[in-house]
Write a protein that binds this DNA or RNA. Structure first.
Lengths: 148, 148
DNA sequence: TATTGTTATACTCTATAACTATA
DNA sequence: TATAGTTATAGAGTATAACAATA
């Protein structure tokens, strides 16, 4: 998602445009780092996302689809590939025999942990900011997202 | 790219983690809006990106690939589809007969413009911030990205 | 009847490798 | 010989529709 440094500035003020562009850059960098981190473990982005999700909490296939905002039919293939690599397994749900719970294996958990650690987006760019600046950034992002 | 609210807090302080999570949310929302905006014009994300790119300046196929950070062979298909829909055309480069310049048609330009306008990511979330806050956010993002 | 997960199908994006036409 | 663009191929993600098992 390259920032498209709008020549159609028409209706938005230059400051806002500049901020949007900066956000676009952040988004692009976030993605690159995510893909690189996933690639280091020979995982695709989607696989890394699912593994990261399951490492927090096993869940039904259906719920994975909701989290990923995609059709449930797609999750079948993604989990198939993770399962083929021994990173995830499907368990029956005692409460509902229609449901299959996807859960990480031991190796899956290790991979997920390592993945999180290699995602140094957490440290590198933010390390340049002081504690006060991070607090300020947190506040601004919260307001932007309407969470505060 | 769902924010993975790290239970592996291990080595990073909670404030940084929280900011990272907020950025993840921004990234996710940015994407959703981009896809929705593209979908309104029956374009895929990649097609919308290329069209947006070309609407700023026609360029050789090779250069599109560099901008998209993908292999040149992929660009052929994306431009094929845009061309089939009459949004883009390939022109010879007078200076080098190996090169094909991809350029938007009139309709392509209109679509690109409309696409940019429906990308209200520029306005909605940022509208919640005062001018001062936007200035502050710009400064923080610049420092984060090492641009300032 | 409704829901969960799967299969089948088709399209797009992606990388790799081999080809062509220029340079 | 090197470069620009293309083709061929294969893998992965995506949506849609239809299906089996279970609720």
């Amino acid at each position: 998602m390259a920032p498209q440094n709008s020549s159609a500035a028409s209706r938005v003020d230059p400051l806002t445009l500049e901020v949007v562009e900066l956000i676009g850059t952040v988004v692009a960098r976030y993605h690159e780092e995510y893909e690189v981190a996933a690639g280091k473990h020979a995982l695709t982005g989607a696989q890394a996302r699912v593994l990261g999700l399951l490492s927090l909490e096993p869940m039904p296939m259906r719920r994975i689809a909701q989290k990923l905002k995609c059709e449930p039919s797609n999750v079948t293939g993604i989990v198939d590939r993770l399962e083929a690599r021994g990173l995830v397994e499907r368990r029956p749900d005692p409460a509902d025999r229609r449901v299959k719970l996807a859960a990480p294996t031991e190796e899956g958990l290790r991979t997920a942990r390592s993945l999180r650690e290699s995602l140094d987006f957490a440290r590198e760019p933010l390390a340049q900011l002081s504690r006060e600046e991070r607090l300020s950034l947190r506040g601004l992002l919260r307001r932007m997202l309407g969470e505060a």
